[in-house]
Design a protein around this nucleic acid. Structure first.
Lengths: 348, 348
DNA sequence: GCTCTCGATGTAACCGGTTACATGAAACCG
DNA sequence: CGGTTTCATGTAACCGGTTACATCGAGAGC
């Protein structure tokens, strides 16, 4: 391969046209005669010319880059969104198709950017001329997304509502999924259905609990106070919450855990208490992480549309960035689907 | 917060100095009188001024961005490096500390950049003036890293050797870890030690098998041909390979699987054959994925230094980028450590 | 044939930084 | 005290694109 031509001026010279024409070939092809267009394109291809992005960004204020903010300190388990990786794939793929790139931003950049200011991310966005931002919630109530959203930067947040002139969010149908889970437990013969909720300050935590309550209501089952235990979305929290449920004297015959990790922790606690899943206590989780299918006897769970998160976030963001600057699209609520496995086999 | 000052010229005007002085305050502080320096810094802080990155990049050719190439098609499971996420965290954290950012690149960008050329990534690197590249191997023998490495772009590859004037790689001590695993199986009383290798075209696959052979040699054990089965690093491959081992007539009393997923697949196959782990067959894995601790009775495994991958990659890359442009540092070999759990309890 | 339009192309300013070089003041020195 | 060095600062060119506006030529209309 020959050395790539460096600049638009060189290419213009070689083509015998002006820089403006070359520029137009790439940015507004129909403003240029087919003949010259082809000529320029052919030479560009042969010489391996590609317009320089920083220069283009400088001139247009559009970088074709979006920031992925992933607000967390690296010590806490908070950074582990249950399917960060799937989200990332979906996001990256969808953005690439539209010619956008993804720049990773995390808490450390905030400080590095000059002191722990509340709007460190906003500065990062400005510095790089980012076209928009995707924010993955880690449940730690960071003020970052609000600062950005309010500044009018196109912004989509995952699993956490934000408002701002060009901000929206995408989440699963948490309440609906929870209702399905409870209805399924009821349909398999369980009547004393407890729940291990997520942290109630998180939106999915609160919504899944609400769905649980609605379902009990609809089924005419009482909502016994001891049957709601708050967890932390992680293994340990599920384990501890399950022990509380077991020690409560009012032993449930089914548990809806608002996250698969908690469900697995709960199953461990059930085993330690000498009880069996699903014979003594049925379990349903939420998320459908990879592990759910592997842990015996297979965890019944409310599956989220993992790839959908990324894809939807990308689509929504691009709509705000590219589209006519009207207003923020409505929040996207992804459907869930119940995956039935061994932890909820019917009672006789 | 007041509106951020847009340009260096404005700030210079407000400070009553020239743009050159302001620029120096940020890039070469000691070239400027303490008094003016403080003055400029104070005003800059008050006004929220930050130098514009694309402009800076345009002028200096240094973007303070490194690309993370993650070569894969999104369909295959190949993108699942066993701990992509940990690597990413380590990488991002270490890079942020030095003021570098991470730009995600993946296969789709290659095409979008104008046809499926072999050096699509190289173009992406040039377009964005990336300072370097980290390449995560997904085992699909992509030619991408070589094109980049040979072009002289600073480049560090994970788990796969590359050469180029400024290229190096980081990997675990795969052979050493494998030797430890086999020695441990021997020490717990096993003598008929089989292995499920990774794909032999991958470097870790080949190295772990080599380590296994060396260990058998050192222990004076024969290396029976039927006792080496090639897997794919995934659950299904481990399962299939284990069945081949069991059907071979020459049943082993221990298996070293070159990856935890394969080990877990193998354990399933052992269970299906009516045999027990560790009583009938002991199992050791490699990686120490999260699941290893959770799957009963706990998988003994060779732990890799997950965070170390990212940190080391970042350090090595920055050394090449920042440092005096001598030559590529030698490959980094991260130590492994054996984590002993329930699948290898000693034989009486 | 002459103007008028319109569409393709060129010229040059501009985006927001960096930096080589010029400048001028202060410090140093014999 | 004149001359030289040193050092902080300023001027202006440059990085590689985009784009407003000017220009020019061809076809349309009369």
């Amino acid at each position: 391969m020959r050395a790539a031509v460096a600049t638009i001026r060189e290419l213009a010279y070689l083509c015998g046209v002006s820089v403006a024409t070359v520029s137009r070939v790439f940015n507004n092809p129909k403003a240029v005669t087919p003949k010259t267009r082809e000529h320029v394109l052919r030479l560009a291809r042969e010489l391996g010319y590609r317009p320089n992005e920083p220069a283009r960004t400088l001139a247009t204020k559009k970088s074709y880059m979006v920031g992925l903010i992933w607000d967390t300190d690296h010590r806490s388990p908070g950074w582990r969104h249950p399917f960060f990786q799937e989200i990332l794939i979906g996001l990256k793929t969808a953005l690439s198709e539209e010619g956008y790139h993804l720049l990773l931003l995390s808490t450390s950049d905030e400080d590095a950017a000059g002191g722990p200011s509340l709007d460190g991310y906003l500065h990062a966005v400005r510095r790089h001329s980012l076209d928009g931002v995707v924010f993955i919630d880690s449940g730690n109530e960071s003020p970052a997304p609000h600062a950005i959203a309010e500044a009018g930067v196109p912004c989509v947040s995952l699993d956490r509502p934000v408002d701002g002139p060009r901000a929206t969010y995408v989440t699963s149908d948490n309440a609906g999924g929870a209702r399905d889970a409870v209805a399924h437990l009821h349909a398999t013969g369980r009547r004393a259905i407890a729940t291990i909720s997520g942290p109630l300050r998180t939106r999915p935590g609160a919504d899944r609990l609400a769905g649980y309550r609605e379902a009990l209501d609809a089924l005419g089952l009482p909502c016994r106070p001891g049957h709601v235990q708050e967890g932390d979305f992680y293994l340990a929290g599920g384990h501890a919450a399950m022990r509380r449920l077991l020690e409560g004297g009012d032993r449930p015959d089914a548990v809806f855990a608002a996250g698969d990790q908690m469900a697995i922790g709960a199953m461990a606690a059930i085993g330690e208490a000498g009880l069996k899943v699903p014979e003594d206590i049925a379990v349903v989780g939420f998320d459908d992480i990879e592990l759910a299918a592997l842990v015996p006897p297979g965890l019944t769970t409310v599956a989220q549309d993992k790839a959908g998160f990324g894809t939807m976030a990308a689509a929504t963001l691009i709509e705000m960035v590219d589209g006519p600057a009207v207003e923020a699209p409505p929040p996207a609520i992804l459907p869930t689907s119940l995956v039935i496995r061994g932890t909820t086999t019917p009672r006789f």
